[in-house]
Design a protein around this nucleic acid. Structure first.
Lengths: 222, 222
DNA sequence: TTGGAATTTTAAGCATTTCTTAAGATTCAT
DNA sequence: ATGAATCTTAAGAAATGCTTAAAATTCCAA
């Protein structure tokens, strides 16, 4: 994945370039507006990071012209402005997201990944110990034995495995798997966890799905 | 961190409260404008979530009056309006951000964290000597050994570690961890401190949680 | 469209863990 | 030595999770 950074502050540009290269992106940097736009229009990039204030040509202007040619390539603004109305103005010019300076690297990495997700394609094979989950074929195996899961069971297991090693809070699960965005007070999650454990017939040594009381569940390889 | 939600729709308020409490915020809810403003002006909150349209007093009005007293405490609007000019009008009244309904919990959590970052410190990882506390995964380690803590134990340890090096008064602890705002007269804190010390099995050299007689406790790296 | 099967959700009783209280033991400062 | 504060323990109360079964819904084929 190729990233173009248009940023006149040397320090920030270098910091981003290094960090993103470590994440195995290919990164180019332009330090002022005109060359930035020229590079952007070359069409070689999968995503643009634009500084708001630039010598030569403003980030907004670059974004606007870039959008005419590449309507789908994501653009993220780096902005020192903290007044939201100007940022909104930026979003109207066609940007997909914005990040306020000073930002943390993890934050920007996360946003980049979100924007690139459709393009990067996702892994389709996930594992949890002896269990394999294939999102492409919608199959789950325990060792060589195929386990038949329903839609919801599969979705729940997928969510847990994607977040392997992290505690999954009930509220997040209900949001991601059930798409419920208001108060929930039913035991659906419990019922499905129960079903999963049963179908996967997890012995004590294979206790991959653990309960975190008062919080949720965690999938981990013991 | 203490959050005040002023929102008249029961469902939304409850959903937010629950989710945010799981993220170990202390959450209070007001369901109409006047009581909302009164609570807000008590000055006990680190951030305000205001519904746009409220019975009694509009969110904008609350924001405006609140801003006079607390110029720096962040305010986020929850709004069903999606016309930009009205939102801008809201932002002019002093809000820091706004979120359109219907929103995803993760979205609002992210915005809250952005606003509170200067106050909270950026990390979800806290340390106290050899002890590590991860608010993201709700896990605690002593060295490489994972320590299983209950909700309250975790909340208490988190409070102490966040205030590492500062004396934590009992009244503050009971407010932040138990959300009790009147006079405290039970020994709950002691019991939990005891549980923590036991579970963390602190030797004499690792006496990270010390008693300040007559005042409270302090967490420090010896 | 309709009937039946599969899936999803709700609900209720039971089991377990966590929380709170209270009381006696211990420590600390004067 | 004394009284106040804190520590420790244990037991009952409350909350949370598990399990099961039945009700509701969806899906699919006739």
């Amino acid at each position: 994945m190729r990233i173009l950074i248009v940023e006149d502050e040397q320090g920030i540009a270098a910091f981003l370039k290094q960090g993103l290269e470590e994440e195995s992106f290919a990164v180019d940097v332009a330090d002022e507006g005109k060359s930035g736009l020229r590079l952007a229009l070359s069409g070689e990039y999968d995503i643009l990071l634009l500084d708001w204030m630039l010598p030569g040509l403003s980030g907004i202007e670059i974004c606007r012209q870039f959008r005419k040619e590449f309507p789908t390539t994501p653009v993220i603004f780096l902005t020192a402005k903290d007044t939201l109305d100007e940022t909104l103005f930026g979003l109207q010019s066609g940007a997909n997201d914005y990040i306020k300076k000073p930002f943390h690297f993890e934050e920007i990495l996360e946003r980049i990944k979100v924007q690139l997700r459709p393009k990067m394609g996702e892994h389709s094979l996930f594992t949890l110990g002896i269990i394999t989950l294939n999102t492409e074929t919608h199959q789950v195996f325990k060792g060589k034995e195929e386990i038949n899961l329903t839609q919801k069971e599969f979705a729940l297991l997928e969510y847990l495995i994607r977040n392997k090693g992290k505690v999954c809070r009930r509220s997040r699960i209900i949001e991601s798997v059930w798409d419920i965005h208001f108060e929930y007070n039913s035991g659906v999650i419990d019922v499905y966890i129960n079903a999963l454990r049963k179908k996967l017939s997890l012995s004590d040594e294979e206790n991959y799905i653990q309960t975190i009381r008062g919080v949720g569940y965690i999938a981990k390889e013991i």
